[in-house]
Simulated assay, not measured.
Amino acid sequence: MTLFVAALTSAFCLPLYSLLLHGLASDLHSHVVLVPLVSLFLLRERRATMPPAGPAWLGGSVVLAIIGVATVGASLASRRVLSHNDHLALFALAYVSLLAAGGAWFKGQAWMRAAAFPFAFLIFMVPLPDGAVDWLERASVVGSTDATELYYRIFGTPYLRRGVIFELPTITLRVAQECSGIRSSWVLFITSILAANMFLRTTWRRIALVAFVIPLGILRNGFRIFVLSELCIRIGPHMLDTAIHHRGGPIFFALSLIPLFAFLWWLRRGEGAPTPRAA
């Protein structure tokens, strides 16, 4: 298996290197650099409970290999049509599929079932396609605008709304796609999936934690827009050119972790102490 991983990585070295550079240069896809390390950590942590390697899982390896080879072909055939991001997304998907095919062949079905989550987590190595990013940004803008209006009503801020535009006492504010907060929401979504798998045992609680991220991300981004607009009203419109607007995302992301982990704690508490068999 080790030789297969080395050979596969060598064969994909150029697109993987391009993916690394793309992740380092992108705010949205910077997490792709860490995803393989997280999967390796999860495999290492579960090594003691993993079953021994068994006979090759022929069906699984063939299906995954077909997906990988077909994706490579699609990437090569459409390289002049696709954007650089979408081209890398296809190559990353092919790499993950072929890696899983190797695991199914060399480790067997029982081992792959035990390692399902670490392998499935590698899907986050695949950058979001441009079309998906555009759709998510537009949806997030609508949700964030509604959340911002909710904060205005709660705190009594006078406003007039026209679509995604707010007319405030000292400034007219437009919620643009650049203010969608999609990067923080995507990282929050990945964090919730990882936390749900590591700390929760029951399926419905895992689903509840991940689903909780959707309204949480919208409310967080709406709160960021609300805070920024309040600063513009009370201090001045020049607050739009300060660091809290251009580089304040990590602060609000950290704040959103508080309700996320509080909800995780509540869900984990509801499960009670694990039985010896579950442990």
Rank of each mutant, 00 (worst) to 15 (best):
A279G: 05
P36A: 10
V38E: 07
S26L: 04
V210Y: 09
F212L: 07
A116S: 15
R183M: 11
G156P: 04
L19I: 01
W265E: 00
L219N: 08
P276Y: 14
L19G: 01
P250A: 07
E45H: 14
S140W: 02
L255K: 02
F12D: 11
R201F: 07
H22W: 06
D86A: 07
C179F: 01
N197K: 11
S144Y: 06
R220M: 09
F252H: 02
L255C: 10
V175K: 02
Y151P: 09
L58H: 13
A262G: 07
G59A: 12
S229Q: 02
I66R: 03
L64M: 12
F41P: 00
P274R: 09
I154T: 02
S184E: 05
I214H: 02
V126C: 09
F189T: 11
V187C: 08
L28M: 10
A56Q: 07
G222L: 03
V5P: 01
G248V: 03
L228I: 05
H246V: 08
H31L: 15
G248A: 00
S184I: 06
T242V: 09
A139I: 11
S97T: 14
D134W: 05
T145D: 10
L240P: 02
I190A: 11
D241H: 15
A116D: 14
Y152M: 00
H22D: 00
R138A: 09
P118Y: 07
Y95D: 04
L267N: 09
H84Q: 03
R206K: 14
L88K: 00
L37A: 15
S180V: 07
W266A: 15
L90M: 13
A132W: 15
Y151E: 14
R269A: 13
S30C: 10
T242R: 15
V141D: 04
G236L: 02
